[in-house]
Design a protein around this nucleic acid. Sequence first.
DNA 1: TCTGAAAGGTTCTATCA
DNA 2: TGATAGAACCTTTCAGA
Lengths: 153, 153
Amino acid sequence: MSAVEETDQAIVSALTADGRMSYTDLAEKVGLSVSAVHQRVRRLEQRGVIIGYGARVDYNAIGLPLTAFVAIRPFDPAQPDDAPERLAHLSEIESCFSVAGEDFYILLVRVASPVDLERLLQEIRTSANVTTRTTVVLSTPFEQRAPRIHLAD
Amino acid sequence: MSAVEETDQAIVSALTADGRMSYTDLAEKVGLSVSAVHQRVRRLEQRGVIIGYGARVDYNAIGLPLTAFVAIRPFDPAQPDDAPERLAHLSEIESCFSVAGEDFYILLVRVASPVDLERLLQEIRTSANVTTRTTVVLSTPFEQRAPRIHLAD
DNA sequence: TCTGAAAGGTTCTATCA
DNA sequence: TGATAGAACCTTTCAGA
């Protein structure tokens, strides 16, 4: 681990925790000039280390208080496995993970109510020709915590 | 749904998609003056609708290429259910969801390698006195998509 | 709740070490 | 790679409607 990596780690760490931190503050935090930090951030963005920036929202406040995991597997095991493309149009699906194990994919979904979840599950089943197994989230002790970074460059 | 809500929806939507968008661009996008938008964003932050801002990173690039779901349940069903507090110190755990169903919690974890996953699972089991059932993520077709907002105020 | 304007800070580029 | 400096732009606040 060189000092360079450590600086980039500190930058990525700081920006995952606060994506709107100014370059002035960031520079002070990592002990570089504003333009040097600016340059490094731009390089991290170009390298694809930093993909983008987003606001974190309270899902209750934006009218999506019901979170669930939906594990899916094909109705017919021989059918082509194109579930992600078939499901991408459903905006209630926040994330889609291809997984090892009995299921093919695990979806993380956010909806307004149980009725909306029912409707969504029907759409998922018909859109991708899959069976679903749903686990409802009751509460979220913590979520989207900033990772500890291990840059290897 | 009033016009006011729609403006706030547009603001939250835009900021979840691009958390660093300038107030100038945001103002143009939602058809208000810069100061009006600024005021609304500040109110959304104060109301807790917008919790914060963060950089989205490529987990491969930051040295955490292995993602997994870890479902946990207490080793002894009679023990106090304080798993989230006991696990919060493990930085590899990005999210912790309390769920309905056979499991008590589902954790989303990010680690560098299978060996690190093994180590983490041992720490989870001993820290919280739980059994674990792990589902490894093979690939992520999509993740952290911006939600469609339904503000109710 | 919105607008417009002004002050101060930040981003970004260019240039040099 | 990093620093400095300056122009352009953005954020923030305030008065007024």
